[in-house]
Structure formats: structure tokens, C-alpha cells
Deep mutational scan, measured.
Amino acid sequence: VTVDIKGMEYHFDNPEEAKKFAERMAKELGGELKVENGTLKVE
């Protein structure tokens, strides 16, 4: 699973970990979490 945090890509084997990480980063950065082509994106 790929997580894109404002252009920086992180790769996770575990989808649950990827989702938790993306949600935490969205909250910390005040960004919006989206799913695009199987990639979790925070913008």
C-alpha cells in the first residue's frame, strides 16, 4: 500500500498500518485524506 503525504511516498505491507499512518498524518498536518487509484493521499 502506498501512502502519499504531500508528495512524499511511504510504502506499507499492512493496509491497516497504512490507513492509521495516513489518518494520523492528515490530522497532524491539517490535510485531507483521499483514496486515489489505491493510494492513500494526504493533501
Rank of each mutant, 00 (worst) to 15 (best):
V1G: 04
T2S: 06
T2A: 05
T2V: 13
T2N: 05
T2D: 03
V3R: 00
V3E: 00
V3F: 02
V3G: 01
V3C: 07
D4Q: 14
D4L: 15
D4P: 02
I5W: 08
I5E: 01
I5P: 00
I5S: 01
I5V: 11
I5T: 01
K6N: 15
K6A: 14
K6I: 10
K6C: 15
K6G: 14
G7I: 02
G7Q: 02
G7R: 01
G7Y: 04
G7F: 03
G7L: 01
M8I: 14
M8V: 14
M8W: 10
M8L: 11
M8Q: 12
E9T: 14
E9M: 15
E9F: 14
E9P: 08
Y10L: 03
Y10F: 11
Y10H: 04
Y10C: 10
H11L: 08
H11V: 10
H11R: 11
H11E: 04
H11P: 01
D13E: 11
D13L: 09
D13Y: 06
N14V: 04
N14Q: 04
P15K: 07
P15R: 07
E16L: 09
E16N: 07
E17T: 06
E17F: 04
E17Q: 08
E17M: 07
A18S: 01
A18Q: 00
K19T: 10
K19V: 11
K19Q: 13
K19F: 14
K20M: 11
K20F: 09
F21V: 00
F21W: 09
F21D: 00
F21T: 00
A22P: 00
A22G: 04
A22M: 07
E23Q: 09
E23A: 08
E23F: 06
R24S: 10
R24L: 11
M25Q: 05
M25N: 02
M25F: 05
M25R: 05
M25C: 13
M25W: 12
M25E: 02
A26R: 06
A26Y: 04
K27F: 14
K27C: 14
K27S: 10
K27I: 12
E28S: 07
E28I: 13
E28V: 11
E28D: 07
L29N: 05
L29R: 02
L29F: 08
L29S: 05
L29T: 07
L29H: 06
L29A: 04
G30Y: 06
G30V: 05
G30F: 07
G30N: 11
G31W: 13
G31D: 04
G31K: 04
G31M: 13
G31A: 12
E32A: 12
E32I: 15
E32F: 15
L33Y: 07
K34V: 13
K34F: 11
K34Q: 07
K34Y: 11
K34D: 04
V35N: 10
V35E: 11
V35W: 15
V35F: 14
V35G: 06
E36M: 10
E36Y: 11
E36Q: 11
E36F: 11
E36S: 10
E36W: 08
N37D: 09
N37M: 06
N37W: 04
N37K: 07
N37F: 07
N37S: 07
G38Q: 06
G38K: 02
T39L: 12
T39Q: 11
T39K: 14
T39Y: 11
T39V: 15
L40G: 04
L40F: 11
K41Q: 06
V42M: 04
V42K: 02
V42G: 03
V42E: 03
V42H: 03
E43Q: 12
E43H: 13
E43R: 12
E43L: 14
E43M: 14
E43F: 15
